[in-house]
């Protein structure tokens, strides 16, 4: 399992216009995670959650600070599930799976089939993304990320574009897949309920891109929102959220 080490990470984007100011998305964030953990990053919109994931994945680079993702001292392999599926529309489901695979063709096909079966799309190998519903496309996105056997799996609000019923069903499937594989997962969401349902640990980011809170969740899996302990945990986190918002309002004066 992978180790993610983030130290004094800051990300500033250049101003949108000549007269504008640089936009600071993340400010001096440090945390580490390692082993069979499912860590959720929660926080309000614009607090730098997705930017952080993009930096961890190498899609973006930090302004200052360091991010290291290692697996037994070597560079770790990453998987990524995005907000939208980001499938190549001109490739079939199987071809999309093979695009990210480093395995020989036959082995890659067998591996992809295994993960497509896990998300209930064993029949969709030869279909194009345009033939699938949004939920099915996101299932392929999840299967694709798991299929590369990632040491660290990054998930950026993967269910935020889906309807509530599909999102719930996919959350349950993700929980099953995570229990089966125990990957190291960094999961971004703005939904506290989702974070409590899936995570061992919840890191809350505040406006301005700083770490506000870091909580361990010790409820047993599978977790149901109807359990009183689940509700209590969710209320506790939401309470901290409210405190954060109150402090922000007070600071603004």
């Amino acid at each position: 399992m992978a180790t993610l080490q983030i130290e004094k990470l800051t990300k500033t984007f250049p101003p949108h216009s000549k007269d504008g100011r640089p936009v600071r998305a993340i400010q001096d964030i440090s945390f580490a995670m390692s082993g069979q953990v499912f860590v959720s990053l929660v926080g309000p919109s614009g607090c730098g959650k997705s930017t952080l994931l993009n930096i961890v994945s190498g899609v973006d680079s930090p302004s200052t600070g360091t991010v290291t993702v290692t697996q037994d001292g070597k560079k770790a392999r990453l998987g990524y599930v995005f907000q939208d599926s980001r499938l190549l529309p001109w490739r079939t489901v199987m071809q999309n799976m093979l695009y990210v695979s480093d395995l020989p063709e036959e082995e890659g096909r067998a591996n992809a089939s295994k993960y497509l079966e896990m998300v209930g799309l064993g029949h969709a190998h030869d279909m194009y993304p345009g033939q699938l519903s949004g939920g099915m496309q996101q299932r392929v996105g999840i299967a694709r990320a798991f299929s590369v056997s990632p040491d660290l799996l990054l998930m950026d609000e993967p269910f935020s574009h889906l309807d509530a019923i599909t999102a719930r069903s996919l959350r349950e499937e993700l929980q099953v897949m995570w229990n089966a594989t125990k990957k190291t997962v960094l999961f971004v969401t703005h939904d506290v309920m989702e974070a409590v349902q899936l995570s061992n640990r919840i890191i809350t980011l505040a406006h301005g891109g700083t770490v506000f809170d870091d909580t361990t969740i010790e409820l047993p899996f599978p977790r149901k929102a109807s359990d009183p302990e689940f509700a209590a945990q969710q209320a506790e986190i939401l309470g901290r959220f409210e405190t954060m918002e109150l402090e922000r309002t007070a600071a603004k004066g």
Binding site: S57, V59, L78, G79, Y80, F82, R86, L88, Y99, L154
Partner: peptide, 12 residues
């Protein structure tokens, strides 16, 4: 551009 960033994220 999202497809290109997907490609980068998966190390292509």
């Amino acid at each position: 551009r999202d497809l290109l960033s997907m490609s980068t994220a998966f190390g292509r």
